[in-house]
Design a protein around this nucleic acid. Sequence first.
DNA 1: CGTGAATTTGAACGACGTTCAACAAATAAA
DNA 2: TTTATTTGTTGAACGTCGTTCAAATTCACG
Lengths: 206, 206
Amino acid sequence: MSAKAISTATADRRQAQLEALIAAAEKRICDSGMHSLKARDLAADIGVALGGLYNIVQDIDALLLLVSSRTLARLGEAAQTATAHLPVSTRAEAIDRLVMVAQTYLTFARENLPLWRMIFELRLDSPLPDWAAQDQLRLFRHIAEPLHAIMPELDTVALTVRARTLFAAVHGIISIGLEERLIAVPAQKLSDEIAWLVRSACRAHA
Amino acid sequence: MSAKAISTATADRRQAQLEALIAAAEKRICDSGMHSLKARDLAADIGVALGGLYNIVQDIDALLLLVSSRTLARLGEAAQTATAHLPVSTRAEAIDRLVMVAQTYLTFARENLPLWRMIFELRLDSPLPDWAAQDQLRLFRHIAEPLHAIMPELDTVALTVRARTLFAAVHGIISIGLEERLIAVPAQKLSDEIAWLVRSACRAHA
DNA sequence: CGTGAATTTGAACGACGTTCAACAAATAAA
DNA sequence: TTTATTTGTTGAACGTCGTTCAAATTCACG
């Protein structure tokens, strides 16, 4: 009754518009970075009047959040295909897998630099929606699982914290390593340093 | 000749205006974050017309860079007073000192959260001026010095890279730990995790 | 004082995200 | 088919922003 009935045809068109909008935003972000994304450009890209954007998304922040979410999903897939087949039965194997997860993260960041940066540069006025927070938390499994094999004495909460710590440490190395503000670190060096850190953290007991 | 002669009185007043401007910017950033800094507010704060700001600084980015630089200087002082008196003669002492540097960094970030964030959120159109890059590189000594005692087999360049890695790892943990986007990590837990990581990295040989 | 240079002013500009009254298209009713 | 109603789209207009610059003001000095 009070809820407006929407024809499926309309809903489908809206979905198509939304996907075109996300695609246009991703393209523009890849080309010139998140900060030069303009509402007027996007409207032109998808052939809609300026005001029409706000029939598709609530505002530009909501669009950026969708792009972020999509990037996180792709990152998750990359981690999955790169490491899911690796064994974790022995401690050494688990460590190798963790190193692989980190390397995959580095590669992904390198190959999707502007989109990857966006995830962390995004500053929302309103708090993260639950579905977006879940998107992020799901990814930690790729770390927590091997880590459990490496540090079996940690309880669930300590393991979660430790997984976050390890992720954050690797993320920091990559984040600062890929900035061009100071001297650029050679690709191989960066990869080596990440492997060193992960192995150090794992070797040095819990 | 071509250089315009500036009376010392004028130069002094300019300097005073600049310091007032930086102070006003710092206050506003502390209160409401870097992104809500407005030229009109700052002009009002220091009792100058809107256009007058551009007699004091080139543009808002230049002001933010000055604030950043000042924050880095305060961070350097904090590291200095917290760790300079600590011994580094034995390996264990050097490690303790490195842990203390990291804890100092955490404390500083906590107590200066908006200013500290600014340093890394700042995205300049033009490349970093040399003096600003030097500001940052100077701080790495606080890490490289103890690290040299811990990993004496590393040559100068490897030591520089390793110091960067260690800084970036700790920075990542703090950066993500202090974000409120996901669940906030308790203060003590964060401190413990940082100490764990630094000790792990140091213990696990070079 | 008077006069030329240095300094400050604030209205104006262009770009931005967002809104909303007017318009058009689609659908339902007659 | 014609008319009425609901639904979807439009783009001019608004408020805010950083920045500019011609004009007004203040200052230095004979």
